[in-house]
Amino acid sequence: MSGVDEPTYGFLRNNALSLTFGGLFLITLGGQALSGVAQVNAEQEANGLGRVGLLDYATSSSFLVDVMENWQSEYLQFFLYVFATVWLVQKGSSESKEPGKEGTESDRDQQLGRHASAGSPGPVHAGGWLTAVFSRSLGLVMGALFLLTWAASAVTGWAAFNSERLGQRQDPVTLVGYLGEADFWNRSFQNWQSEMLAVGSLTIFAVYLRQRGSPESKPVGVAHADTGQTG
């Protein structure tokens, strides 16, 4: 590749998916901040108030609560999906194991114990609790990230909620009190329902629709009823 040395090109090629989405994440987060502060300043000017700086807005509870709500709903989606696909199947979907293979599968299937290879991760060879934790580490991390971002959305939502109440000359509520407010649960459910719709749609669409070359799709010529195959 002209202008790029081979090790760098190899790194970029081998990590293109994560690098691309990482870059898109930063671009869209920046776009959210820029459009958000523009909206706030339009409202400020309409009310005869001073403008808000980008940094002040990006560190405000009103911006952070929107970010945290989106993050926690995404991690909830992945947490539920990782664990649900252990036990639940959808015949014909590339997003599902084949019917009859529900459960944690055998050591042979999972390359554990005497079935581990030389290239298996270190925790697999360690055995005991380390292997047990590692074998569930993806779901555990997704669950932990969901809880952390949900807690962050609760705190930032509480701050934003009290800011509005003070602006209306109402007494602020405690954090525990905010957890019982309709505002908190409305914010949570409106994000969660969209994630459940997205996962359910992809699962069933993958039975009947194809995307050539994508591992999220079955091969184009595979029968609708074939399950668990990827293109």
Rank of each mutant, 00 (worst) to 15 (best):
D226W: 02
E98Y: 00
H224N: 15
R108A: 15
P172R: 12
G228M: 01
K97F: 10
E74A: 13
T203L: 12
L26W: 14
E216C: 06
T59R: 11
V4N: 00
S153Y: 01
A160W: 05
E105F: 06
A116C: 08
S93Y: 00
V89P: 01
Q111A: 13
V40T: 10
W185C: 10
V40E: 13
P99Q: 09
T227P: 02
S60Y: 07
T131Y: 02
R13E: 15
L54A: 11
L112Q: 12
V199F: 13
Q190G: 00
S201C: 04
F21N: 11
L26R: 08
G157P: 00
V52L: 07
Y178Q: 10
Q77N: 09
Q39K: 14
G92C: 05
T156C: 15
I204E: 01
A182R: 08
T104D: 07
L130I: 14
N191M: 10
Q111N: 13
G177L: 05
G23T: 02
T28C: 09
T28Y: 10
S61T: 00
Q90H: 12
A206N: 15
R210F: 04
V82K: 01
L64I: 13
V89W: 02
A132P: 00
F146Q: 03
A198M: 11
Q168M: 09
E95F: 14
G31L: 03
S106D: 08
R210C: 03
L145P: 02
G48F: 09
A126S: 12
R210A: 03
S217A: 04
W158D: 01
S201M: 07
V65Q: 14
L140P: 00
S153T: 08
A152S: 13
E105M: 15
